[in-house]
Amino acid sequence: MALLASARVGRIVYTDRALPAVQPVNFHLHGERIVILTSSGSKLSTAVANAVVAFETDEYDVETRTGWSVTAVGRSRTAHEPDEAAALARLPLTPWGPGRDHYIVVEVQQLSGRRVPR
């Protein structure tokens, strides 16, 4: 969880028309929940509503050939409640583009990872 919390960009893996899809996103780890800010009505927000998704983030240093990778699996949902959305809006989560007003929350149920030592 500490490695996951240290990253700011990850990849969410979901199903799109019965095929696997991957999208890079910025995120914030809030407790044991991954919070992603996107646009309502976007392909991502529609595809991950109440779905089981995977989330991956990593770091790799080319010069030292060291790094780590973390994969989380859980059910995603939309933050519909006004109180929850207001609380998530206070998180240090900066959207990549304008018009981002839709919070996706992934409740982490499984977590795995590995370190690549020197």
Results as ranks from 00 to 15, higher is better:
residue 85 A to Q: 13
residue 34 I to A: 03
residue 60 Y to D: 02
residue 53 V to S: 00
residue 75 R to Q: 07
residue 118 R to G: 15
residue 79 A to F: 07
residue 87 A to P: 11
residue 3 L to Q: 15
residue 9 V to Y: 08
residue 61 D to Q: 10
residue 62 V to W: 12
residue 85 A to P: 00
residue 70 V to N: 03
residue 45 S to Y: 03
residue 86 A to Q: 10
residue 105 V to D: 11
residue 34 I to W: 00
residue 62 V to I: 10
residue 42 S to N: 01
residue 62 V to F: 11
residue 38 T to V: 09
residue 37 L to T: 03
residue 55 F to A: 07
residue 22 V to F: 02
residue 62 V to Q: 14
residue 39 S to Y: 02
residue 84 E to L: 15
residue 10 G to L: 09
residue 51 A to L: 04
residue 44 L to M: 11
residue 27 F to I: 00
residue 111 L to G: 12
residue 55 F to T: 01
residue 89 A to K: 09
residue 22 V to S: 07
residue 51 A to T: 10
residue 15 T to Q: 06
residue 25 V to C: 00
residue 97 G to T: 12
residue 102 H to C: 14
residue 56 E to M: 07
residue 3 L to F: 14
residue 66 T to D: 10
residue 113 G to L: 08
residue 2 A to F: 11
residue 78 T to M: 05
residue 110 Q to Y: 12
residue 31 G to F: 02
residue 10 G to V: 08
residue 102 H to Q: 14
residue 15 T to H: 06
residue 31 G to M: 05
residue 93 L to D: 08
residue 118 R to D: 11
residue 9 V to M: 09
residue 63 E to T: 14
residue 78 T to D: 02
residue 73 V to R: 13
residue 105 V to W: 11
residue 31 G to P: 07
residue 113 G to F: 08
residue 6 S to Y: 03
residue 75 R to D: 02
residue 17 R to F: 12
residue 95 P to H: 02
residue 106 V to S: 05
residue 49 A to V: 03
residue 48 V to I: 03
residue 14 Y to F: 15
residue 93 L to F: 08
residue 51 A to W: 03
residue 15 T to P: 02
residue 89 A to V: 04
residue 114 R to C: 11
residue 118 R to T: 11
residue 30 H to T: 00
residue 62 V to A: 13
residue 82 P to I: 08
residue 53 V to F: 02
residue 16 D to P: 01
residue 91 L to E: 13
residue 18 A to T: 08
residue 40 S to E: 09
residue 44 L to E: 04
residue 102 H to A: 10
residue 38 T to S: 08
residue 21 A to D: 06
residue 62 V to S: 14
residue 98 P to F: 15
residue 51 A to N: 07
residue 49 A to M: 08
residue 70 V to H: 01
residue 17 R to I: 11
residue 57 T to E: 06
residue 90 R to C: 15
residue 21 A to K: 00
residue 74 G to V: 03
residue 18 A to H: 04
residue 9 V to K: 01
residue 57 T to M: 05
residue 104 I to K: 01
residue 13 V to T: 09
residue 97 G to H: 13
residue 18 A to M: 06
residue 50 N to A: 14
residue 80 H to G: 07
residue 68 W to K: 00
residue 107 E to N: 13
residue 53 V to W: 00
residue 7 A to I: 06
residue 96 W to V: 01
residue 99 G to E: 06
residue 106 V to Y: 02
residue 114 R to V: 09
residue 86 A to W: 07
residue 78 T to N: 05
residue 13 V to K: 00
residue 47 A to E: 11
residue 58 D to T: 03
residue 19 L to F: 09
residue 2 A to K: 13
residue 64 T to C: 06
residue 88 L to E: 12
residue 94 T to I: 06
residue 36 I to E: 05
residue 32 E to R: 08
residue 87 A to Q: 14
residue 34 I to Y: 04
residue 66 T to E: 14
residue 86 A to D: 10
residue 53 V to E: 02
residue 36 I to R: 00
residue 64 T to H: 12
residue 101 D to F: 06
residue 29 L to Y: 01
residue 9 V to R: 04
residue 44 L to A: 03
residue 29 L to M: 00
residue 53 V to I: 05
residue 109 Q to R: 12
residue 30 H to A: 06
residue 58 D to E: 14
residue 2 A to I: 11
residue 69 S to V: 09
residue 21 A to I: 06
residue 80 H to R: 13
residue 31 G to T: 05
residue 115 R to H: 13
residue 30 H to D: 10
residue 5 A to R: 12
residue 89 A to G: 09
residue 107 E to A: 15
residue 87 A to W: 09
residue 114 R to F: 14
residue 4 L to A: 12
residue 110 Q to V: 07
residue 8 R to M: 03
